[in-house]
Nucleic acid binder design. Structure first.
Lengths: 251, 251
DNA sequence: CTGATACAGACTGTATACAGGTCGCGGCGC
DNA sequence: GCGCCGCGACCTGTATACAGTCTGTATCAG
């Protein structure tokens, strides 16, 4: 029962191991706190120890694993507070991105592309049968956030944000799906989309401070989604890496 | 001519290699853009390829090296803009730390310790012969920033900030020494210290937004220092890792 | 004289062997 | 019955051998 998805010959063994191992952790096939044995991973991933080792180090840097004092790595467990803070930090960094974009001005093509994406999101949100297109919303949402980062034009910021998003449940659209069964879904998406419009407008008008504030608040929608998911645990399965979050005591 | 500082038997080879290699990069003994050959490092650091490889990966994650598409790593070069943005990001994260501390309240002992450090800094700054104690100022300043992070009580934020500080010239007190020959030194330290006091007061009063704003502005002092160092290149040598910054065209 | 090609050197990616340490389990003594 | 000690398995850290690839140079053809 080896990992099927990653079998390309083109990818290096290290990358292969990294992707497969991340998948394993995110899918919850390795229990939080549990040691990740190199040899077991060799067996499971079909590569030798060296690439496995590399993958372990990189995933620790990503924050999905943590080093064991006596050596080796264990799957990291996240408390509710940590997830909350991770979202807050992501929002802060996206706020900086928006401000940077506003302050030094975004290119016309970027602004145009962003606007096009927002139009596409409108099409998705305006439909009443939303459940079906949630995947599309997530994809478009991710695109918008990507282009926002591109407008900031700051490799350093990109690196930091990339790292913040490495925690899967902290990234912009990770928690959207949990609302799929919520009556508020339409409401939430409408509000989020309005924030998209506002931040883009702020960037166009060079209103840096406003752009920053909007993106910060925009990220806080994820807090509501998190709260929902924690009270309706069954919707938690829709979140990648949810297995890493320490369960709240059942109500 | 091997690296002398790191020769402890207690440290693992990997850590040894990491420290020594970082030192090499920061001291500018490896030119920016230049490939870092594993075998050469084996020779130079006195450890085998495996630990060297580990060290390379970790330093890439830190941001001091960058991966070469065809394989291996090169010393990263930083533009003036990147340094500016790195400082801005560090300030933003420290702002979040201050806000977190204010919002969920810092412990009495932390507040007390912070106040003690500020008293000690006052002693240093009030003296007129400042040059001598600049090292002490740097140390106390670092302590204050550390305790601020501790008050935030957020491992996730700590990780992100640690990473932001990994760029040596972005960390809180990295650029202080460049002002040692500046007539404005006393003025700058006085202002910085006042900001320290203000942020601590804001945290005590649970004024999160204010605490955040102050820390952001506090970090921007580093921008001035950077500007000074870039115009007075000879003072640049006082900054660790200055060799990585692309030189501005001489005036 | 210029451009392309082939070859040589070097370098990285990968696999594996070896040594030292750690953790857990079982047996023995109290 | 309980606690301590010792042994053994496992696991990581390290070193090194091997293969594929890239780069740079030199030579040859046009």
């Amino acid at each position: 029962m080896s990992v099927d998805k990653v079998s390309d010959r083109s990818l290096s063994q290290t990358v292969k191991a990294q992707l497969a191992l991340r998948e394993l952790v995110l899918r919850g096939e390795l229990n939080p706190g549990e040691r990740v044995s190199e040899l077991q991973m060799v067996e499971r991933l079909g590569v030798s120890r060296t690439p496995v080792r590399m993958a372990l180090v990189r995933l620790e840097e990503e924050g999905l694993l943590e080093a064991i004092p006596s050596g080796g790595f264990a799957v990291k467990a996240f408390s509710e507070k940590e997830v909350y803070e991770a979202i807050e930090i992501r929002g802060t960094l996206e706020g900086v991105a928006a401000r940077f974009a506003a302050e030094h001005g975004a290119s016309r093509t970027d602004l145009r592309n962003a606007a096009d994406i927002l139009d596409a999101i409108d099409d998705v949100v305006r439909q009443e049968r939303i459940e079906i297109d949630l995947l599309q919303y997530v994809e478009l949402n991710a695109q918008f956030h990507r282009i926002l980062l591109a407008m900031a034009d700051s490799p350093t910021l990109a690196r930091q944000l990339e790292r913040a998003n490495a925690l899967p449940f902290a990234s912009p659209s990770a928690l959207v799906p949990v609302q799929s069964r919520s009556p508020e879904l339409h409401h939430i998406l409408t509000v989020a989309q309005d924030q998209h419009r506002c931040v883009l407008s702020a960037i166009e008008r060079r209103e840096g401070s406003r752009a920053e504030a909007i993106m910060r608040e925009h990220a806080r929608i994820a807090h509501r989604n998190l709260e929902w998911a924690l009270t309706n645990q069954r919707d938690m399965d829709l979140v990648p890496g949810s297995a890493l979050i320490k369960r709240r005591i059942r109500a």
